[in-house]
Design a protein around this nucleic acid. Structure first.
Length: 795
DNA sequence: CAGTGAGCGAGCTTCCGCTTGACTT
């Protein structure tokens, strides 16, 4: 640094007296306002260093271990921070108080070359002026034990991830991955699917009755206390009721009336996990969508930080909420509540998710942002409101000589309290006040219905319920729930279900007007739409990992190592020793599996023998996914391969289904001197002819379609294409103006090219009157534009 | 858009948790 600039910085010391470093830039902006001119606030954008990718051998650990490096995309930032730190008199490390935040402070200290005498470590849990001033007044040093707990966590995750994944590459398929968190998430989904597969659904009959109060005619809906095991016993019950009623139409009497008060309390304000669950349930948002919308609300200053496990609300916020509740709803509706987290591994570096200004009933932004904001605001308000008071009524109705009681339930809200703004989602949706009834009172019968129902298997996870389960197990953190779900989908371990379910008949018996009638109705069951289901790859990887690495895949593995991390944080254990211990137990199991010779591929199933050739038929995970193979690699004749069709799976495929896959592609014959072929591709059944593809409609199949039918389809496709073919340009052979899904566009397919390149036409131009010069220009401009970056390696 | 499939070869893939861009569509 030049001496004159050094002097200048002393003279104008109020500029760079203090440098405060926080994790998030949005936070930096807010804090800078609170602190005034003497403080410059910068952000580290999370971690600034990570483990070197090269070494993972803690058994060779020395003082240099572990090696850290600054990722390329952080280099510029680190330069900026270094410069600012040099110019400042005092550097305040204000990263979060949790384990990761403490480590960030330590990395900053090391990387920026800070000195103890002018470095202060401060923490605050809420972004309010008093909290920040209090933090500044009470600085401390870096808690190295807590940092060590983070290093242990980081190194353990590296060891597990980077030693397990290569095993999968060797034994199953390249580019797969495994880790402490993702592998357990996949396991949850796989095991749930297995439970569903072994579940047998049992039918039963649910009996309901509608009674009427005479003479007013008021209706009372009831349900029988018992379920009937089968249709015969349901019919028997209805028969006996019929007989009784034929003798005495008012045989049923009220036998019991119970009224009791009930209170309901509001749920705590949102954390990341509960926000994701409720936004999914109430607004239909995916976990990713919720986080993106919340990020926007946070950056626009509308809500507090959205990645949190804390239920805490700042004192300032509590005061504002109190004012808001009292002024909008009255004193009676207010109730101060403080919530404490019970969730495993919570670190509570932030507040709960709440509006920054509770009196703002809505915010500027998209419709979705508004809806998410309203959800957050209502939940926050409700958390500081009074209990709801209800009155629950239970009425039992029975008749002599009928061994069954019918029960009606009614609920009346006496005081709505927090329910004014937010309904708990676990609350039963009972509405309705029952008529006033007295014991002994006679009732008429409108009808009695026995409806066949079926016991249901456990529900598949949705993204949101998976997050809840992960949080319960202490696996993953608020910042990783959404990315983990994306990762296991990208690896093709799980996917969102697409099955509509199957039709199922059920019977309904109805007793009305002294007659019993029977109906058969149809319903759909077993749909997995939008739910998380394992793929073949997911199942096979999970079976493999749970067999050979049961400790890591154990649902309590994280909880157990977290206990160690806590002891490290308390200074009771040395982190390097703990890691060496873990590695000493874990690494040999990796060596062992690598030496293990397997005579077939992991997850391979032998289906039998091909009757035509006598060669063995098997199904397994191939390089591009599930595949059927006829014959062995060692055979003189090369083996044959065929991919599974969508909807088929390795675990259930039969020999017949497997052999059928080799019927395609089918050569149908010649048309205009070119062969016509039928097959199934990634987008369904198709016909190929002269390099062109035509989809086969649903009412035909590639296995049975005739040459005549195929030619019809080809001709129809040509007509449709011709209608969409607007113009050719003699100046540029191979260029045409086509009418596509999004309107006219230019397609250029030079002689001999395999694929056409498409060009967008700017909205400002009329496609029909484009000149050749304009076309050349627009093509050149689009060719020069950088190729679009691929979002992910998959598909 | 619509395919691929066992080993001479060369190197790559991967973890979890902090944090936002800079890209399209």
């Amino acid at each position: 640094m030049r001496p004159d600039s050094f002097r200048a910085s002393i003279h104008t010391s109020q500029f760079m007296k203090n440098l405060v470093i926080v994790e998030s830039p949005a936070k930096a902006k807010t804090i800078e306002k609170f602190l005034g001119k003497d403080y410059k606030v910068l952000s580290s954008y999370g971690h600034i260093r990570d483990l070197s990718k090269r070494e993972i051998r803690p058994d060779q650990a020395d003082d240099q271990y572990p090696a850290y490096e600054i990722p390329a995309d952080k280099k510029e930032l680190v330069r900026t921070l270094k410069k600012a730190a040099k110019e400042a008199d005092t550097v305040w490390l204000a990263s979060d108080e949790d384990r990761e935040g403490e480590a960030i402070a330590w990395h900053l200290y090391e990387v920026l070359g800070l000195k103890p005498e002018n470095t202060r470590r401060i923490v605050f849990h809420e972004i309010t002026k008093p909290a920040i001033l209090a933090a500044i007044a009470n600085p401390r040093g870096i808690d190295i034990d807590r940092v060590n707990a983070q290093q242990a966590r980081r190194v353990l995750d590296r060891i597990v991830g980077f030693e397990l994944s290569p095993v999968l590459w060797r034994k199953i398929k390249p580019a797969l991955s495994a880790g402490r968190v993702q592998s357990v998430a996949v396991r949850l989904i796989c095991e749930r699917e297995k439970e569903i597969n072994v579940f047998t659904s049992e039918p039963y009959f649910r009996v309901t009755a509608r009674f009427v109060l005479l003479p007013s005619g008021e209706e009372i809906k009831t349900e029988a206390s018992r379920r009937m095991p089968d249709e015969a016993s349901a019919r028997e019950l209805l028969d006996s009721i019929k007989t009784i009623l034929s003798k005495d139409a008012e045989a049923f009497k009220v036998t019991d009336v119970k009224v009791h008060p009930l209170t309901r309390s509001p749920q705590p304000p949102f954390t990341t996990s509960t926000l994701q669950q409720e936004a999914s349930r109430r607004l239909g948002f995916s976990v990713n969508q919720t986080m993106m919308l919340a990020q926007r609300l946070y950056e626009d200053g509308h809500i507090t930080y959205m990645r949190t496990d804390s239920l805490n609300l700042s004192d300032l916020a509590l005061r504002d909420i109190a004012t808001e509740v009292k002024s909008k709803y009255g004193e009676d509706y207010y109730n101060l509540r403080r919530f404490h987290t019970h969730s495993k591994g919570a670190q509570e570096a932030h507040e709960a998710i709440r509006p920054t200004y509770i009196d703002k009933t809505t915010v500027a932004g998209t419709d979705q942002e508004k809806r998410l904001y309203t959800l957050i605001r209502n939940r926050t308000l409700a958390s500081q409101m009074a209990d709801a008071r209800l009155e629950k009524t239970l009425v039992d109705i029975a008749a002599d000589r009928i061994d069954e009681t019918f029960r009606a339930e009614g609920e009346v809200v006496k005081f709505d309290g927090f329910m004014r703004v937010y309904q708990n989602s676990d609350a039963a949706n009972l509405d309705g006040r029952l008529p006033v009834l007295a014991v002994g009172q006679s009732l008429g019968v409108e009808d009695v219905t026995a409806t066949e129902r079926f016991s249901a298997p456990p529900a598949r996870y949705s993204e949101a319920t998976l997050v809840k389960k992960m949080e319960d197990l202490g696996i993953g953190r608020p910042s990783t729930y959404a990315p983990t779900i994306s990762t296991i989908q990208q690896r093709d371990y799980i996917k969102r279900g697409e099955k509509e379910g199957e039709k199922r008949d059920y019977s309904v018996l109805t007793l009305a007007d002294g007659k019993i009638s029977e109906q058969t109705l149809t319903e759909t069951s077993g749909s997995d739409k939008g739910r998380l289901v394992p793929t073949d790859v997911g199942m096979i990887v999970n079976d493999f990992l749970t067999e050979y690495f049961p400790d890591i895949l154990d649902y309590n593995f994280t909880a157990r190592v977290e206990e160690k991390f806590d002891e490290i944080a308390e200074g009771k254990l040395g982190w390097k020793n703990e890691i060496k211990d873990f590695y000493g137990g874990f690494h040999p199991s990796i060596e062992k599996i690598n030496e293990l010779r397997m005579d077939h591929k992991v997850g391979e199933r032998r289906l039998g023998v091909d009757p035509k050739t006598g060669r063995p038929v098997s199904v397994k995970i191939g390089r591009f996914g599930p595949v059927v193979q006829i014959g062995e690699a060692s055979d003189e004749e090369k083996p044959l391969f065929a991919s599974l069709a969508s909807g088929q799976s390795i675990s259930t495929l039969t020999l017949d289904e497997a052999l059928k896959l080799f019927d395609l592609p089918r050569t149908l014959g010649d048309f205009e001197d070119k062969t016509v072929v039928a097959a199934v591709g990634r987008f369904g059944p198709y016909i190929r002819h002269n390099g062109a593809f035509v989809s086969i409609p649903k009412d035909m199949a590639p296995e049975t379609i005739t040459l005549e039918e195929a030619v019809e389809l080809i001709k129809a496709k040509r007509e449709k294409d011709a209608a969409n073919h607007l113009k050719d340009y003699p100046e540029i052979p191979g260029l045409s103006l086509l009418n596509g899904r999004f309107g006219p566009y230019l397609a250029y397919k030079p002689e001999g090219a395999k694929k056409a390149v498409n060009y967008k036409i700017p909205k400002s131009k009329d496609p029909q009157t484009l000149t050749i010069e304009e076309i050349r220009e627009l093509m050149a401009a689009q060719d020069a534009a950088p190729a679009p970056r691929r979002r992910s390696a998959k598909k």
